[in-house]
Amino acid sequence: MKKARWSSAIVLAMALGACSDSTDSSQSTESAASSNEGGRPAAVSGKSFDLIQGEKIDLLEYAVRKLTGSCLKDAGYPQMANVGVQRQNGTEMMFVLDGGRFRGFTSEKQARERGFGSVYPAEPARLVSYDKNFDKKLEECTDEANEKLGEDSRKTIEAYNEVANQVAGEFAVFLRKRVPSDIPALADCLEKEGFPLRDREAFLKMWDVKHFGIKLGANKKIDQWAPSPAKGGVQIGPPVAERPYTPSPQEAELAAAWYRCDAASGRVEKLLKDANATAAEITARNEDKLAELNPKIEDLAKKAADLVGSA
């Protein structure tokens, strides 16, 4: 089995406490049409890595997927085109800083409503292949899609991703050092609010709310679709609706107390100020590389928009 190759490969998550689920793909090739990041938000605010062209990288990835689907359809494999290719914003959002990244709430009302969980966005239909002929044509079509963007498009995008990962990596080092310094005071405040920790030392390391020993909420449950290796061929799973998160009553109260503690200490505002300053410093250290690559990325993005639109 050969896994599909795509243009964009930024993999370093910048958010502390982020987690991801992984599935065993050793038995199948899953197309990029099945990305589980959901659609793009109506607007994005709070950018601080101004020189990073994340939005354009996302556009280029979308273009490669879109062109790949068309190529497959022309070759007699319409599944990817029929499922549809959605533009994602994963790279762009990696370089957006706001209070939510540091577990900050905008109001006590929002804190009670959201708790500490996350809404799982809607997912498009999932396409999985156990067909070697499809896999081969998928790889060929992906190469063809990259060539349509430009002879050196793949090389350029990979070079850009390398710089972006360098920037993200340096910022992650800052986060690991800076964020924990505020947690002891937060823990003290929450204890005064009536939320003592069962394991303070563990909380100071990971600030996981499970260490308060309260019942947490959950996302709406759904029936999970699973492809069948025995069936073979190219299989398409159903799209998945958005799954909201409902905090437990105790969690809602803890979140409200968390907001009050942050409002009193200014933790989030101070952290955002330091984070934006650090982001600017890191970006400046990589400015020469970005100055060389940004015009190339912009040209590729214009070509991508001409070929597939901007979604």
Rank of each mutant, 00 (worst) to 15 (best):
T106L: 03
T106C: 01
T106Y: 06
T106H: 04
S107Q: 05
S107I: 09
E108D: 11
E108V: 06
E108P: 10
E108I: 10
E108Q: 08
E108F: 07
K109Q: 12
K109F: 08
K109A: 14
Q110G: 12
Q110I: 02
Q110H: 12
Q110S: 03
Q110C: 08
A111Q: 14
A111F: 04
A111N: 04
A111D: 03
R112Q: 14
E113Y: 10
E113K: 10
R114G: 10
R114V: 12
R114S: 14
G115I: 05
G115M: 00
F116L: 07
G117D: 10
S118C: 14
V119M: 09
V119L: 10
Y120G: 14
Y120W: 15
P121G: 07
P121V: 04
A122E: 08
A122T: 07
E123N: 14
E123K: 10
E123P: 08
P124A: 14
A125S: 12
A125L: 09
A125M: 01
R126Q: 13
L127R: 03
V128H: 13
S129I: 02
Y130H: 09
D131T: 02
D131G: 06
K132T: 07
N133D: 03
F134I: 00
F134C: 01
D135W: 04
D135T: 05
D135F: 08
D135R: 04
K136T: 13
K136E: 08
K136I: 15
K136L: 15
K137T: 15
L138F: 06
L138K: 00
E140P: 01
E140V: 14
E140H: 08
C141G: 11
C141E: 11
C141Y: 08
T142Q: 12
T142K: 09
D143G: 12
D143M: 13
E144A: 09
A145E: 09
N146F: 11
E147H: 12
K148A: 04
L149S: 03
L149A: 01
G150L: 01
E151V: 07
E151I: 02
D152Q: 13
D152N: 11
S153N: 03
S153K: 05
S153R: 08
R154I: 07
K155V: 09
K155T: 00
K155Q: 12
T156V: 14
I157M: 14
I157R: 02
I157T: 05
I157A: 06
E158I: 02
E158W: 02
A159I: 04
Y160G: 04
Y160F: 07
N161V: 10
N161Y: 07
N161P: 11
V163C: 06
V163I: 03
V163H: 05
A164F: 02
A164W: 02
A164D: 08
N165T: 11
N165L: 06
N165G: 15
Q166F: 08
A168D: 00
G169N: 05
G169M: 00
G169S: 01
G169E: 00
G169W: 05
E170F: 06
F171H: 07
F171A: 03
A172E: 05
A172W: 01
A172I: 11
V173C: 05
V173S: 01
L175A: 04
K177A: 11
K177Y: 04
